[in-house]
Design a protein around this nucleic acid. Structure first.
Lengths: 209, 209
DNA sequence: GGCTCAATAGGTCGGACGCCCCAATTGGTA
DNA sequence: TACCAATTGGGGCGTCCGACCTATTGAGCC
């Protein structure tokens, strides 16, 4: 029986291309795709793949954010543009079984899928380090893509030292309630849990000043 | 009657030099000095100056931190090495009546002291902007000087995305109570109020990785 | 031998924060 | 037209956080 997988990635070219490529393999069958985290969650309501292939950087809801909401779901492999330690750590924390750079060759990906489908973890430090070393790539951020303009404004304020709900509300001319809503949305998309982490991400993403 | 002032600055050369210089003016009398924020607070227990001259960057307790604790105290002029907007904003928030760069000429300082002693505010946007523009200087940080090594460790963790009390405690092998104590100390020294601002400061001070 | 200070730890308490639910409006798009 | 996303706002709730307090230990210093 072929390994049934679901692919979640916001880049259609990659999503569809990968879908076709993997589908052409005799032992792998792509049963569905999703363009973002929320779509992935919806898809998994009705589909039950053996392995999930999920991108980190996606609009509306990041891959890691989706995995968090799906704890206990099918084993997953996280693919990413920035093969950074931090990302890998988060992926592991979110319950990912595998972690691969997007520039890894297809055979490596297929191998990872087969390994994860067999119940193996492809998160081993040494192995990953090895893979990453061979497929390293420049780091350029597109992580803020998922954020709306208002969320970005709020994040910029946060990163400039305005941390209280009331202060943020005053600066943005909105209610404290709305500030909290925006923050919750930011947390979800960036897969974080509080304002301190939001500041870290904001600065990492270059959202300040 | 001469204007009675107290000078708080951790750099003895500047503190004593300024003390003498201002004392030589006919209408200004330096009645006490302090080497840090806590000393300033102690001094003000027994002394009641007309104006306080306080540096921002000081060990143990920053000038702004001290002003916060002294709300309702004598009018104060904040002097600083980094004439930044953020600093000025904080100084104003802490109740400062004046704000000057350390590179401002003595006559300007004397004028500011006289103005503040007369009940004026020397925080006016335009005026300050003017003064700062004429006495701008390179910004180099020595702000982290007040922090202990353990506090710096904690801050570095914070700036790397570890924000929960329990997580911090685990990483540092100390109790959650101690984490909170260290944080409180950091807040005091950096004149901030929460973890989000701590991350901002940590990164501004270069305390990360 | 006191003195200060860093580092450790505990307690209490009010308010802030994060998380869940829901809803109305607007504007773009399929 | 009908849907969807973004933005705005609300209520409730449990937990965490920050403020203020005391206290012990060990290092370093005059």
């Amino acid at each position: 029986m072929a390994i049934r997988i679901v692919i979640a990635d916001d880049h259609t070219m990659l999503r569809e291309g990968l879908s076709q490529a993997l589908d052409s393999l005799p032992d792998i069958k792509v049963i569905a795709t999703a363009a973002d985290g929320r779509e992935l969650i919806e898809v998994l309501d009705s589909a039950t793949p053996d392995v999930i292939l999920v991108d980190i950087e996606m609009p509306r809801l990041s891959g890691i954010g989706a995995l968090r909401k799906l704890e206990g779901a099918p084993p997953s492999i996280v693919v990413t543009m920035h093969a950074e330690d931090e990302q890998r750590r988060k992926a592991a924390a979110a319950g990912a079984s595998g972690f691969l750079s997007k520039s890894a060759p297809l055979p490596d990906l297929a191998a990872a899928i087969r390994a994860v489908a067999a119940g193996e973890e492809v998160l081993d430090e040494a192995t990953i380090r090895d893979v990453l070393d061979r497929h390293r790539q420049p780091i350029l951020d597109e992580g803020a893509a998922a954020l709306t303009s208002r969320e970005r404004e709020l994040l910029r304020l946060l990163a400039s030292g305005v941390s209280g709900t009331e202060d943020l509300a005053d600066r943005l001319f909105i209610s404290q309630k709305t500030v909290k809503n925006h923050l919750a949305s930011i947390y979800e998309k960036l897969a974080i849990t509080d304002r301190a982490q939001a500041v870290v991400e904001a600065i990492r993403l270059g959202i300040h000043r």
